[in-house]
């Protein structure tokens, strides 16, 4: 029997719609979201957009200024670098590389961290402590330093720096998850779920995870900005991505040699990193407040 629908105009938004409604109110966050979407778009479709091969050198056109300069050339929108490589293509590929790698790293460390944290939070006693403090020693050392240590042992390279950064990001996730799980396990609704016959795994996914979204969003955005900074810092120090590869940090360090003659070689990659960081942080902030207010209004 179809239900009699008396109030046609009444409309019940789903949780996600509710969050979106709150999020839209925050204009800075919305703008930053478009920015992040743009970066994700670049990440996926970068190779189709880039006008040149990022590694292709053109000896006739060294250090061409950007198109808006008097001496600029419109076919090289962002100019070229000291080896005649097109800056625009290099930055597009650079964003793709830096952003994509950071995203992958954060997702991996989130999955590992949340899994370990949940295990620590749901169990009791010694086992909980061991799992919780498994990677604590890593927290005492700055991420970059661990990366440098790992690289000193295994040698330079992008993959090695990725290992280092994801290892360094995991403990934060473990601790936050464990604290939240501990806190929520004491709530009566978890007791009620137990009385429904729910097992531990079911309780975690159905009762605790929905209440963890806020913390996860904050943690993911923090981790994402840390990852981007570290990847580019290691690239800049020539420890991560190696010279010819178009990674934003590596681009910066290459541009440094011609900084006085061609300032756009460091300004443009720097601006790309800046926009990436800012938009991610603003989106994270907006999402956090949207998630919090969703449950208050």
């Amino acid at each position: 029997m179809p239900r009699l629908n008396l109030y046609q105009e009444e409309y019940y938004p789903s949780p996600i719609q509710n969050t979106w409604k709150e999020f839209k109110e925050n204009h800075a966050a919305l703008l930053s979201l478009y920015c992040v979407i743009f970066f994700i778009f670049l990440m996926i479709f970068g190779p189709f957009l880039a006008p040149y091969d990022p590694l292709q050198q053109n000896i006739d056109l060294l250090l061409v200024p950007p198109a808006w300069d008097n001496n600029g050339d419109i076919s090289y929108l962002f100019g070229t670098d000291g080896l005649g490589r097109d800056m625009l293509s290099r930055i597009i590929y650079g964003c793709r590389m830096t952003f994509g790698i950071s995203l992958v790293l954060v997702i991996i460390s989130m999955l590992v961290g949340v899994a370990l944290g949940a295990m620590a939070g749901m169990s009791k006693g010694l086992r909980s402590s061991v799992v919780n403090h498994l990677l604590d020693s890593i927290m005492a050392i700055p991420t970059l330093l661990i990366a440098i240590i790992i690289i000193a042992i295994v040698g330079t390279g992008l993959v090695n720096s990725m290992w280092a950064i994801s290892l360094a990001l995991i403990p934060q996730f473990i601790h936050q998850t464990r604290d939240i799980v501990r806190q929520k396990m004491k709530k009566e609704y978890v007791l009620a779920a137990q009385l429904d016959g729910a097992g531990k795994i079911h309780i975690f996914f159905n009762s605790i995870l929905p209440n963890m979204a806020e913390m996860l969003v904050v943690q993911v955005t923090l981790a994402l900005s840390v990852a981007i900074l570290d990847i580019s810092a290691l690239g800049f120090l020539n420890l991560g991505a190696q010279a010819p590869s178009p990674e934003l940090g590596a681009l910066l360090s290459e541009g440094l040699t011609t900084a006085y003659v061609a300032p756009w070689n460091i300004a443009l990659p720097g601006a790309a990193i800046f926009f990436m960081m800012m938009s991610i942080n603003l989106v994270g902030d907006g999402l956090r407040s949207a998630l919090r207010y969703r449950l208050l209004r």
Binding site: K187, E188, Y189, L195, P210, N211, A213, L295
Partner: peptide, 15 residues
């Protein structure tokens, strides 16, 4: 089945 003392606490706020 059980009904809890404080229904405010026994309903999950996130879902």
């Amino acid at each position: 089945r059980m009904v809890f003392q404080n229904s405010n606490e026994s309903l999950n706020p996130g879902i």
